[in-house]
Design a protein around this nucleic acid. Structure first.
Length: 677
DNA sequence: CTGATTGACGTTTTT
DNA sequence: CGTCAATCAG
């Protein structure tokens, strides 16, 4: 039984979605059709940029449901929460009212949280564990490094986390890692790794890699659990398979071992997460791991113009170790790809924004058509202030800027402590926020004692307060704070539906507004910060509203995984009609009619760190990153660079990115040469 | 313990 | 040029 598909308009989170996405099954080309119709057995869809990969997955899901597979037996794993939501929306649009139950669509991390919430105690972890977000991880790393007296000069917290993450994705325990360490830095890192892991385990917290690692461990050590989940899902599909890392592969391999109904979709040329442990080999060797796999190649690009695609193809040809695809454009255009030089970075920002404003105001082009893409997070600053100055609406699609804000972190820690009183990591962050007379001296002493004696923080604190081991003022404050937390813990028990209102009350009770006033003398800024707090309450309220059985734990999980509930309506609308600013990494999977890639200079793209590494693979990944950027553009692509740039106070000339020449045709380069002479 | 001032120093991407 | 940690005077 094959369902009849209905064409339906679909809204993407980034504004417009190409026309291609809106059409129905009958318009698929032959390879696409065969991919969609392959319902059983391993299947590899090898596709280029703009060929409708995600659409194939969505269609296939609809096809499965149409042929009688219950939606909840289908597991679709995507790369980001946003993509997951979008995929669900699209499936719903294709099936119309026929989708009664929610298919299981998630990211790897959300999948693992759901597995672990049930069975993590089997691995000796507390039933209620905390997921550390990036900021938490960094502070653990920092304090571990302090413990073993490693200065930040020889190993910075961020770098340590990177090394640990790579080891974890490779499945290396601290002990094994110690054998593998090649230099002093890595040796230091192994010591830090052990302590880091001990610290997490003893506080009942996990980082992102642990989520995957523990889930894999659960499968390997508890066959009954694995069996249950193998039966739970009859079909598994994975989007963006080129970014799968070692643990993710283990997880999936275990899940599909019995039925082998696995469909993966990916583009080896778009693998840009190697630094995070992703391994292209998984997609390159798919056939080896899953013998008999059908391979479908999609090489018809429906997104970019022929000109843009020609540049993309020329660029990526410089990479070795790839499957080798040549994308065919289905769209021709007379718009040339433009290469622009500006004397300095200020002018680059000014002119680019001016041009965008011109098109919006004089030509009536929607602001949402534009995207400015860059390599690093410090680059957008100039563009932001320029956009603001010229009055152009914009949206900085920062990875986690919302959760990075101090206020959000503070409030999250309050909620974490209320949800899990034994979460001392979070307690320490808020014990003196707003300042209540418990300084670092006091809390440090108490923590040290608590750790040494292996007792809960509050036991030690109460004892010390009575014994007069801490200043009188601090002792008083400690007792008051403990009582405050206790009384709120009671109020937050039993999953109250008015969590948001309660949180608001809590904020008032601790006089958080006064803290804000103190921190920010500028009243304008104060308002901004207050708004951040309001936003947080809104997010919480939004979560409660659309969740049947809301819990603080789940809300906090979602926050750590950056799965924020729907943006408030205002923001949503602004997002639809605003110029998007984002890094190349976050642009993955999106598309825009007009793309500006800025700062095309050696040292930025490719980034200096990959150039210095002298490892050709680093450069190749940067090249793929550039390729991803180029292929985001549907109609207009502009690459620009500044001939000089200020760094650390002094202005220095720049060198054009090697990728610029690599992507230009012979003729282009020749005319350029003549013009130069 | 808190709040202000001075100095050193800095290379990337994120679930 | 910024940021952030270390330092010093209430």
């Amino acid at each position: 039984m094959v369902p009849r598909f209905r064409a339906a308009p679909v809204q993407s989170t980034c504004g417009s979605l190409s026309e291609f996405m809106r059409v129905d099954l009958s318009s698929l080309n032959a390879p696409q059709k065969s991919a969609v119709r392959t319902l059983d057995g391993p299947l590899l869809v090898l596709a280029g940029a703009g060929t409708g990969k995600t659409r194939v997955i969505t269609m296939r899901m609809a096809e499965l449901i149409g042929s009688g597979v219950p939606p909840e037996k289908i597991l679709s794993v995507t790369f980001t929460n946003k993509a997951a939501k979008e995929m669900l929306e699209r499936t719903r649009a294709i099936l119309g009212g026929r989708l009664k139950t929610r298919p299981w669509i998630s990211t790897f991390h959300a999948l693992c949280v759901s597995l672990l919430r049930q069975d993590i105690s089997r691995l000796g972890y507390p039933q209620k564990f905390t997921i550390l977000d990036r900021g938490d991880q960094e502070s653990v790393a920092r304090s571990v490094l302090r413990d073993i007296r490693v200065t930040e000069k020889s190993l910075r917290p961020g770098d340590l986390l990177g090394i640990i993450s790579r080891w974890k994705s490779a499945g290396l325990s601290p002990l094994r890692a110690a054998h593998e360490a090649v230099d002093d830095r890595e040796y230091l890192a192994t010591m830090a790794y052990r302590r880091y892991q001990d610290r997490l385990r003893s506080t009942g917290s996990v980082d992102f890699d642990d989520l995957l690692l523990l889930a894999a461990e659960l499968f390997e050590e508890h066959p009954d659990v694995l069996d249950r989940h193998q039966q739970r899902f009859s079909h598994v599909q994975i989007d963006e398979y080129q970014d799968t890392n070692g643990i993710q592969f283990r997880l999936i391999e275990a899940l599909v071992r019995k039925h082998r109904n696995l469909c993966v979709v990916g583009d080896d040329d778009q693998s840009i997460y190697g630094w995070r442990g992703a391994d292209v080999q998984h997609i390159l060797n798919f056939g080896r791991y899953f013998p008999g796999a059908q391979v479908v190649r999609l090489e018809d690009n429906y997104r970019c113009t022929d000109q843009i695609l020609a540049h993309a193809n020329r660029l990526v040809r410089h990479n070795r170790g790839r499957h080798g695809k040549v994308l065919r454009a289905s769209k021709t255009s007379s718009h040339e790809v433009r290469f622009l030089n500006y004397p300095d970075e200020q002018l680059e920002a000014e002119k680019v924004v001016f041009e965008i404003r011109f098109h919006i105001q004089q030509k009536g082009v929607p602001a949402g058509d534009f995207a400015i893409l860059f390599r690093t997070n410090e680059q957008p600053r100039l563009f932001e202030s320029e956009l603001r100055r010229q009055g152009v609406p914009y949206l900085l699609v920062g990875s986690q800027s919302f959760f990075d804000r101090k206020e959000i972190k503070d409030l999250m820690c309050y909620l974490k402590v209320l949800d899990r009183p034994e979460d001392e990591q979070s307690l320490l962050r808020i014990i003196n926020v707003p300042s209540r007379g418990i300084g670092p001296g006091t809390s440090g002493k108490l923590l040290e004692r608590a750790v040494k004696e292996g007792r809960p923080f509050w036991d030690v604190a109460g004892e010390a307060a009575r014994a007069g081991d801490v200043p009188k003022k601090a002792a008083q404050a400690l007792l008051e704070f403990r009582d405050l937390l206790r009384s709120w813990q009671v109020r937050f028990q039993n999953r109250p539906r008015d969590m948001a209102a309660l949180t608001r009350e809590l904020i008032d009770a601790i006089h958080y507004d006064r803290e804000i006033e103190k921190q920010y003398p500028d009243p304008q800024q104060q308002l901004g910060r207050q708004a951040v707090v309001d936003e947080f309450i809104d997010a919480l309220a939004g979560y409660v509203e659309k969740t049947p059985d809301p819990s603080l734990t789940e809300f906090l999980d979602n926050c750590s995984l950056n799965d924020r509930d729907e943006e408030p309506d205002k923001e949503q609308q602004a997002a639809e009609n605003a110029v998007k600013l984002m890094t190349l990494h976050s642009a993955k999977g999106l598309e825009f009619p007009r793309v500006y890639m800025v700062g095309m200079e050696e040292g930025i793209l490719p980034h200096k760190r990959s150039v210095d590494a002298e490892d050709e693979r680093g450069i190749e990944e940067e090249r793929r990153l550039c390729y991803v950027g180029v292929t985001r553009a549907r109609d207009h692509l502009t690459l620009s660079r500044a001939e000089s740039r200020i760094k650390w106070g002094s202005r220095r000339p720049t060198i054009p990115s090697r990728f610029l020449d690599e992507m230009r045709s012979e003729e282009d380069l020749e005319t350029e040469l003549e013009a130069g002479e």
